[in-house]
């Protein structure tokens, strides 16, 4: 599903990713770990084609990203659900509208939107918050809205950059269970995290990056170091 072949990305003098080669299968669940500034977010931005690599080849869902035209980027991104530490919800839209927004972008009909959004909100356990604004929700609830928005269009890949970074441990676990459920339905998950106990307890594939290099890649792995 995701293939990096000798990918290097530099920002001026800083080498954010160096000669990275990795293969991620369809349906995989990958934790991306490593110290701050290691290049984890850079890795993720390369997948969504927010950044261009300086060298190497990236193939996502069968498509070579460097050969992709600008017009194809939106289509590519619809195949990738994105979740962030800071949720990135629109404050002037209700929970319902925030999720519906993702469907409007792909020109779903009102009827489809009105049917699917409440369904999705109830899967996320926030059906009673549909008409609230993000500010009126707890952090955990806001992240559920963000996840709902990320997967409402059935992307094949879910990318999460420290999705539990702003959550207390209990809420973080609830979110992890949701993401795990999404992964079990067949969605490939790539998740950046600094949460040692989550990584250790989930027992998924762990890829460690340090100073731009992939230094470890093992299944059922451990977080592996202390921050």
């Amino acid at each position: 599903m995701i293939d990096f072949k000798h990918v290097t990305k530099e920002y001026g003098d800083t080498v954010a990713l160096e000669d990275a080669t990795i293969h991620i299968d369809q349906g995989d669940f990958v934790f991306l770990v490593g110290p701050t500034g290691a290049g984890k977010s850079t890795f993720i931005k390369l997948i969504s084609k927010e950044l261009e690599p300086d060298s190497g080849e990236i193939i996502v869902a069968g498509k070579e990203l460097s050969k992709m035209s600008n017009r194809e980027i939106p289509i590519h991104r619809r195949d990738i659900g994105m979740v962030f530490q800071d949720f990135k919800l629109l404050d002037n839209k209700t929970v319902f509208e925030n999720v519906a927004f993702a469907m409007e972008i792909v020109h779903c009909s009102r009827r489809t939107i009105n049917r699917q959004v409440p369904q999705m909100l109830s899967v996320m356990g926030i059906e009673d918050k549909a008409n609230n604004f993000p500010q009126e929700l707890s952090a955990g609830e806001q992240q559920r809205v963000a996840i709902a928005r990320a997967i409402i269009n059935n992307p094949r890949i879910l990318i999460a950059d420290e999705p539990t970074g702003n959550l207390d441990p209990d809420t973080a676990w609830e979110i992890m269970e949701l993401i795990n459920t999404i992964n079990r339905r067949g969605t490939t998950v790539v998740m950046v995290t600094h949460a040692k106990d989550i990584v250790n307890r989930m027992g998924k594939r762990v890829v460690a990056i340090d100073r731009g290099r992939i230094v470890r890649d093992n299944r059922g792995g451990e977080y592996g170091y202390d921050d």
Binding site: L90, I105, V106
Partner: peptide
């Protein structure tokens, strides 16, 4: 956000 979700230009 629109760009992340895959909105066309």
């Amino acid at each position: 956000i629109m760009k992340y979700i895959g909105a066309t230009n």
